[in-house]
């Protein structure tokens, strides 16, 4: 055994590889790099067998010095036997015989934290001085933090964009004057109802005398009336019904899961009644009414949006023709009447 011989290579190795261990021919530790002071909490492991300090995870071999020497230059996966059981990677190089570099028949093992470096600097309170000057560990720690900060900024941006997108979509489906849904929303809802084969009632409603209000009392009065009309329609319908303003004084109402012609007629009557109750704008009475044409999806073997809109329009036209403030239901048995 040459344990007593001076290890000439030690100072050089301490600078180049602060995390190295030097073993003698029996596999006992004779010198450790300065970083091990912190890793082992100040405990000296000189005289301890290397394989008592570390477990060799891969490659799997007999845990003897002879077998270890057989793994020269291979990549070793090691784990500290003591807590926090840090995983390290390492490489072993045999010490050349009789060179004075270190104990003959022994070996140098250089170790690195590998990917667990982020945990290791925390667990062992490491500083830059514990790494070789050429080691990229500090740059890696820098990069981990820099990337986390950049990711955080990106994540915040994504969150804000998501919020803006939801708000924009909401707006795109909404008529800004009345808060009712718009034509885009109507296409979307009708498509969905038809695709899911849900029965519904489609009601077209045109205001009567609205033009008169606008012409005599001005646009502010007109806007006021439209907002009032929107409120009345919201009050007279259920929350899962949809009210759409398709044009100036034109509305479409969709009643999901409604199949009864009586209930539809009743609804239409009630809506017209409410619309006819006088409203006042700045002391001036605004008198309007409404005409309604409706059709039921249950009238059709295969309802389509175009066909139902057309039939509801035809019924609406008939209602208007019968005088204002009337409602008509599409008659599925009648042949299509020619429009004048």
């Amino acid at each position: 055994m040459s344990d007593m011989a001076p290890i000439h290579a030690a100072p050089m190795m301490d600078t180049l590889c602060p995390m190295h261990l030097m073993l003698n021919d029996t596999g006992h530790i004779v010198h450790m790099g300065p970083a091990f002071d912190k890793i082992l909490g100040g405990k000296s492991v000189i005289g301890l067998r290397f394989l008592e300090l570390f477990e060799l995870k891969r490659p799997s071999i007999n845990q003897t010095m002879e077998a270890l020497l057989g793994l020269a230059t291979a990549k070793l996966h090691l784990q500290l036997r003591a807590a926090p059981r840090t995983e390290m990677k390492g490489v072993l190089v045999p010490i050349p015989e009789n060179t004075g570099v270190g104990p003959s028949g022994g070996a140098v093992i250089n170790l690195s934290f590998g990917i667990s470096v982020v945990d290791a600097v925390h667990d062992f309170s490491l500083t830059s001085a514990d790494f070789a000057v050429t080691d990229l560990a500090i740059e890696m720690l820098y990069l981990v933090e820099a990337k986390s900060a950049a990711m955080e900024a990106s994540r915040k941006l994504n969150q804000r964009l998501q919020g803006a997108k939801i708000a924009a979509e909401e707006q795109a489906f909404t008529d800004t004057l009345t808060g009712l849904k718009n034509r885009r929303a109507m296409d979307y809802i009708l498509n969905r109802l038809i695709a899911s084969e849900t029965d519904f009632v489609l009601m077209n409603l045109d205001l009567d005398y609205f033009k008169t209000v606008n012409d005599t009392l001005g646009h502010a009065a007109g806007d006021y009336v439209l907002q009032n009309v929107a409120r009345i329609m919201v009050e007279e319908t259920r929350s899962n019904d949809t009210i759409i303003r398709t044009g100036g004084d034109e509305f479409v109402l969709i009643f999901a899961e409604l199949r009864s012609t009586e209930a539809t007629a009743e609804l239409a009557c009630r809506l017209i009644d409410r619309l006819e109750q006088p409203m006042r704008f700045q002391g001036q009475p605004c008198r309007i009414s409404g005409s309604i044409g409706a059709t039921l999806s249950s009238f059709y073997a295969k309802p389509t949006q175009e066909r139902m809109m057309e039939d509801a329009d035809t019924a609406l036209y008939a209602a208007k023709h019968a005088g204002r403030g009337q409602h008509r239901l599409h008659d599925p048995t009648a042949t299509k009447p020619a429009r004048p």
Binding site: V118, H122, L126, L141, V144, E145
Partner: peptide
């Protein structure tokens, strides 16, 4: 102080 570990 500067600790290499962000967690610390």
């Amino acid at each position: 102080d500067f600790d290499l570990s962000a967690r610390a």
